[in-house]
């Protein structure tokens, strides 16, 4: 629309700026904090003028924090690796199990499919702690406590219902005639699933995978209860910055920046799949 007045444009610009400032400012501030020492962070009044330092990042990456109180061991990098490994594996397992299941729920409509799908969703209703306490006991008995395998399994409680319900909707949105047409053309059930249903549901699968990854990455309580130090993700590992000699704000900020990066990169990468239209122009009406 070209009929917008200048005033309208200006007001709109101000409104957008305000919203962006509101949501982006904390991240921006944390980004600045990550280049400061505890002293400059805590000075009153705060200022964005400071001498940038890389000590926080250096400490996180080398795993040793030299301070006046002495040297402190930090496991941040292995926590970061744990987060990446756990989330990636959880999403991969979730997709392998969830996508075919979503197709079955969406397309095949077998007896009891609605009930099963709802039961899977209901896993998300209960407070995680309710599930965790008995689970911890079982896991200790069968030797799954503090193993990657056990954690990835428990992460399915977060990942699987999400993938299942999002992807199912996308499968249902594919006109059945498109799949029928491929079958009638002479292709079998599995070929149709691989060549038609999967590619057409790809935006949904990408969205669900990304969301599931973020949920898994941000998970705190499962890993806190079920994992000990060497299997802990960053969310739990960040607790280590609350030390006896004070809270290491600079390291926390640097840790946050480092742990945002993988999800940010993934979101940017998945974006092109997210915006691709579902079945533009394929079916009339």
């Amino acid at each position: 629309m070209d009929t917008q007045s200048t005033l309208e444009k200006v007001l709109r610009g101000i409104a957008i700026t305000a919203v962006i400032l509101f949501f982006m400012f904390p991240i921006f501030w944390i980004f600045l904090m990550s280049f400061q020492t505890n002293e400059t962070i805590l000075r009153v009044p705060p200022s964005i003028v400071f001498e940038p330092t890389l000590t926080n990042y250096k400490a996180l990456i080398t795993g040793r924090l030299e301070s006046t109180a002495g040297a402190l061991e930090i496991e941040f990098m292995s926590n970061l690796f744990n987060s990446a490994y756990l989330s990636t594996m959880a999403v991969i397992v979730g997709l392998i199990l969830g996508v075919p299941a979503a197709y079955a729920f969406g397309r095949l409509k077998f007896r009891g499919s609605e009930d099963i799908a709802f039961t899977l969703l209901s896993f998300r209703f209960a407070p995680p702690l309710l599930v965790l306490l008995p689970l911890t006991i079982y896991f200790q008995q069968i030797g799954l406590a503090n193993t990657y395998f056990g954690l990835i399994w428990v992460y399915q409680l977060i990942v699987l219902p999400l993938i299942l319900w999002i992807v199912r909707g996308y499968f249902e949105d594919i006109p059945a005639d498109i799949e029928y047409a491929y079958r009638i053309a002479g292709h079998g059930f599995w070929a149709t699933f691989r060549k038609i249903a999967l590619p057409l549901a790809m935006p949904g699968i990408a969205a669900a995978g990304l969301l599931a990854f973020i949920f898994a990455w941000n998970n705190f309580i499962f890993a806190l209860v079920l994992a000990s130090a060497d299997k802990q993700p960053v969310t739990v590992g960040a607790l280590a910055f609350v030390t006896a000699s004070g809270i290491q704000y600079g390291q926390i900020a640097a840790g946050i920046v480092l742990s945002i990066l993988p999800t940010l990169a993934l979101a940017l990468y998945a974006q092109r799949y997210l915006v691709e239209g579902l079945s533009l122009g394929a079916v009339k009406g």
Binding site: I178, A181, I184, A185, H187, L280, A282, V283
Partner: peptide
């Protein structure tokens, strides 16, 4: 359906997008 040796055109075309 894939074994029936049929050709079919759909009212909504049902092309593979």
């Amino acid at each position: 359906p894939e074994d029936r040796g049929i050709g079919m055109a759909f009212q909504n075309f049902a092309l593979f997008p």
